[in-house]
Design a protein around this nucleic acid. Structure first.
Lengths: 168, 168
DNA sequence: CTTGATAGTCAGTTTTAGTGACAATTCGAA
DNA sequence: TTCGAATTGTCACTAAAACTGACTATCAAG
């Protein structure tokens, strides 16, 4: 991004600051609650898990990661007891990634922590202002992703490296 | 993050979507304008460059990256002709990372592209709404970073990998 | 039944992050 | 001023993650 000068940081820089600091707070809190064997990286899977299961290729799409990365993340999370692979009844090629009991507990904990974080911001900004902010953020995210898809039709484009986290 | 269910995505998920799609659009546009030899990763340096120079350790702080990473990024950018290292007049230990002429052109291009992106969102949301949104985002980012610093005092915590971009 | 696309995995290469140590320098306190 | 602690940037090394290409199995359309 271009946060040049001492001037005001741009949309990308701000998004990066929010992302990484929220991510850090979330995983620190999760670790304190006993989920100390998962890393932010696993968020590509955990954030999009559903109780009724989701396909690996769907995870790759929504997270913007290569399917190989999703595969290895699921391997790890399966060893750690967070998810399990079940055959997809509707498609014998596919497997459903389903949360285990521990996975469900993690999901609930993550939702709760994120709610706490957002409530803190809502108090700081005011409930209405925060609600408007989040609505706007949602619209910006949607609009921005649409533009992206228009540009690179078909090409697989793992959004960059989250690794690249210093980036914006 | 926890974007569980089909429910509404949380702050982290939204920030990630914005970050990575903005990042992709920015670097695609930069490439089209001739800056096709830099990657999003280099944003950790480029986004915080200043015409009068900035220290590597300062870059490490603001970008949340290890100083070794900054060092190798600066190595690359120096080879590519975007920056140069100059001795810091005020501290003989330090070196100032200064943009070259090409670096300045890149900075201007990035600022211009980001302005275009933000103007698109401002038109979609309405100028006033977008301005309020960005102010709120700024406050959320500041507040969130403060909380982080409170928790991990002193510890160096490279905010994660931007690479980890699928993450939330 | 053939063709083409999709789902998931395997193996291998390359890139990047993370760790510890180091010399040079600065700063603060005795 | 002199000593010790902290800081700046770099080097060398290890660990981890991303990327590439290929491959089987399955589906879906004609």
């Amino acid at each position: 991004m271009s946060g040049h000068q001492t001037a005001e940081p741009d949309l990308g820089v701000l998004a990066a600051q929010v992302l990484f600091s929220v991510q850090r707070e979330l995983f620190t809190a999760l670790a304190e609650q006993g989920f100390d064997d998962i890393q932010p990286r696993a968020g590509a899977v955990l954030a999009y898990l559903r109780a009724d299961g989701i396909r690996a290729s769907e995870l790759a799409r929504v997270s913007g990661q290569h399917k190989q990365v999703i595969g290895s993340l699921v391997d790890d999370l399966e060893c750690l007891g967070y998810v399990e692979r079940k055959p997809d009844p509707g498609d014998r090629r596919a497997k459903l990634i389903c949360p285990t009991e521990r996975g469900l507990l993690q999901m609930e904990a993550a939702v709760s922590i994120m709610r706490t974080i957002e409530e803190r911001h809502a108090k700081a900004l005011g409930q209405q202002e925060y609600a408007a902010f989040k609505t706007a953020l949602h619209r910006v995210a949607d609009l921005q992703r649409k533009v992206q898809d228009r540009g690179h039709r078909g090409r697989h484009r793992p959004v960059a490296h989250v690794r690249s986290r210093g980036l914006e």
